[in-house]
Design a protein around this nucleic acid. Structure first.
Lengths: 178, 178
DNA sequence: CTAAACGTTTAGTACGAACTAAACGTAGTA
DNA sequence: TACTACGTTTAGTTCGTACTAAACGTTTAG
């Protein structure tokens, strides 16, 4: 294969690693997605081991993660025990899934935590100077809760937007820029 | 101090740790911000050591990081060698700063990486079956570059939005939800 | 000029997450 | 039945990062 092409693929794969790692996912996950994305045909697990240069176990784990995130699709061929993988190319869809994942996991947790703290203060029967402090806590916690509520609503809204509208929105912003 | 209040503060601080850690920042950073945020008066470094329960060095480092991110403000009192810290309470502003930080650092890098890979393929003079592959690479890379461009524009747009508009937008989304 | 009170920096450490190598389970095949 | 070809799981290792403890530099006070 032409050198430049191989080099380009490796550079791309490496870049994908960095991106996924930066966003809190395993580096191998990004690399594997990159390799699958730059494949005209679906790729087997062993081919991925070769392309990416990580162990079979790691590929297995990360490819399953990618599948769960809707970033790749497993494809079983009849009369072939191997699994083959294809890349999802609708990035807006992927972004939406990732956002959803995060929203459910740790985003809602943030909201809950603040809410719980707020409840604790509210249920305390403080008196004297403590009452003053309790009131202050309540104010602060309430303000943050309000922010998280808004943010959560915003994200939830984005998630429900369908592909077409997201594309339109993206194009809209793109036009503004140039 | 009333037990419930102390408990609420600790719960809140712990929650802030989780959030910052999840978003790729040190846990202590979140904890320290939480402690400052729940303080009616500005807090000294030693008080933070006491409140959060980490070493002085860690507080020093993280408080500086918080300052750089615009999440706390250092306040020097005359005739007092200690530094005192106040929490930024405008969360939209903070969110914008954080977004900006990320956009500049690794977001643009993602764009650059894909662009570079694209250039490599473009500059390759492939022939035969390689030409076909090169064309495929170009298509794929170009598609991803387009996505990142849009996303980057969108984020850049959000960053430039001022506080009022963001608040309005948030309220808007909030109303939709309920 | 020494001592104390700061915040910062550094060397060492602890911890968690992601990887490797290898054992494992399972389903087809000789 | 044994063997092979898979993907998965697990035990152990590695590695990066955030922490602690302590030395350090600097400024103020006695």
């Amino acid at each position: 294969m032409t050198d430049e092409i191989t080099q380009a693929r490796e550079h791309f794969i490496q870049g994908m690693s960095r991106i996924t790692h930066f966003w809190g996912f395993p580096k191998a996950m990004g690399a594997i997605y990159g390799a699958i994305y730059l494949s005209p045909q679906s790729v087997s697990l062993d081919e991925l081991v070769e392309l990416v240069g990580v162990s079979k176990g790691a590929v297995s784990t990360n490819v399953r993660l990618l599948e769960r995130l809707g970033m790749v699709h497993r494809q079983v061929q009849v009369g072939d025990r191997k699994d083959y993988y294809l890349a999802e190319t609708d990035f807006w869809k992927v972004a939406r899934t990732l956002l959803k994942e995060r929203e459910q996991n740790e985003f809602g947790l943030a909201l809950r935590t603040v809410g719980e703290s707020l409840d604790m203060v509210a249920s305390s029967e403080a008196n004297g100077s403590d009452a003053e402090l309790a009131a202050f806590y309540q104010m602060r916690l309430q303000e943050m809760k309000g922010f998280f509520d808004s943010l959560d609503s915003l994200v939830a809204m984005l998630i429900t937007l369908d592909e077409l509208r997201l594309n339109a929105l993206a194009r809209f912003f793109n036009n503004i820029k140039k």
